[in-house]
Deep mutational scan, measured.
Amino acid sequence: NQASVVANQLIPINTALTLVMMRSEVVTPVGIPAEDIPRLVGMQVNRAVPLGTTLMPDMVKGYA
């Protein structure tokens, strides 16, 4: 099963992502693939992302 990117903490709206904010986990539904974590660093979320939430492509500005 493919691992997805999951929020390791509450990520406030418009926050630029850092490695410490994300972890990989096998979840359903599948979100952004864990191998894209390096690409996500520095990108901003367009909404608040609660701890444990799977990051979906539409949550990250410029990802989709």
Rank of each mutant, 00 (worst) to 15 (best):
N1C: 03
N1A: 15
N1D: 04
N1W: 14
Q2C: 02
Q2R: 07
A3H: 11
S4W: 04
S4F: 04
V5S: 05
V5G: 03
V5A: 09
V6T: 11
V6H: 03
V6R: 06
V6P: 00
V6W: 03
V6S: 04
A7W: 01
A7E: 00
A7F: 01
N8G: 13
N8H: 11
N8C: 02
Q9T: 06
Q9S: 08
L10E: 11
L10G: 14
L10C: 02
L10I: 08
L10A: 05
L10W: 11
I11C: 02
P12S: 15
P12N: 06
I13W: 08
N14C: 02
N14H: 10
N14K: 04
T15H: 05
T15C: 02
T15L: 07
T15I: 13
T15N: 07
A16N: 04
A16K: 08
A16P: 11
A16G: 07
L17I: 07
L17R: 00
L17Y: 00
T18R: 04
T18I: 10
L19D: 03
L19C: 03
L19Q: 06
V20N: 06
V20W: 14
V20Y: 14
M21T: 05
M22D: 01
M22G: 00
M22I: 15
R23C: 02
R23A: 12
R23P: 01
S24K: 15
E25K: 05
V26P: 13
V26S: 11
V27I: 10
T28L: 10
T28P: 03
T28S: 09
P29I: 09
P29L: 04
P29C: 02
P29W: 07
P29K: 08
P29V: 10
V30T: 10
V30N: 11
V30K: 11
G31T: 02
G31H: 03
I32T: 03
P33M: 12
P33G: 13
A34V: 07
A34F: 12
A34Q: 07
A34P: 11
A34L: 14
E35N: 14
E35Q: 08
E35S: 15
D36Y: 06
D36F: 04
I37N: 06
I37G: 09
I37M: 14
P38H: 11
P38T: 08
R39L: 08
R39K: 06
R39T: 08
L40C: 02
L40D: 00
L40F: 04
V41R: 10
V41G: 09
V41A: 07
V41H: 05
G42D: 10
G42S: 05
M43W: 07
Q44V: 13
Q44C: 02
Q44D: 09
V45Q: 01
N46Q: 13
R47G: 09
R47I: 13
A48I: 12
A48L: 13
A48Q: 04
V49A: 08
V49C: 02
P50M: 10
L51F: 13
T53G: 09
T53C: 02
T53K: 14
T53H: 11
T53I: 13
T54Y: 04
T54Q: 07
T54H: 08
T54S: 09
T54D: 01
L55M: 08
L55S: 00
M56T: 12
M56Y: 04
P57W: 11
P57E: 07
P57L: 08
D58G: 07
D58M: 07
D58A: 11
D58E: 05
D58Y: 07
D58W: 09
M59D: 08
V60D: 00
V60Q: 01
V60Y: 01
V60C: 01
K61I: 06
K61L: 07
K61C: 02
G62F: 07
G62T: 12
Y63M: 07
Y63C: 01
Y63H: 04
Y63I: 15
Y63R: 01
A64I: 12
A64M: 14
A64Y: 05
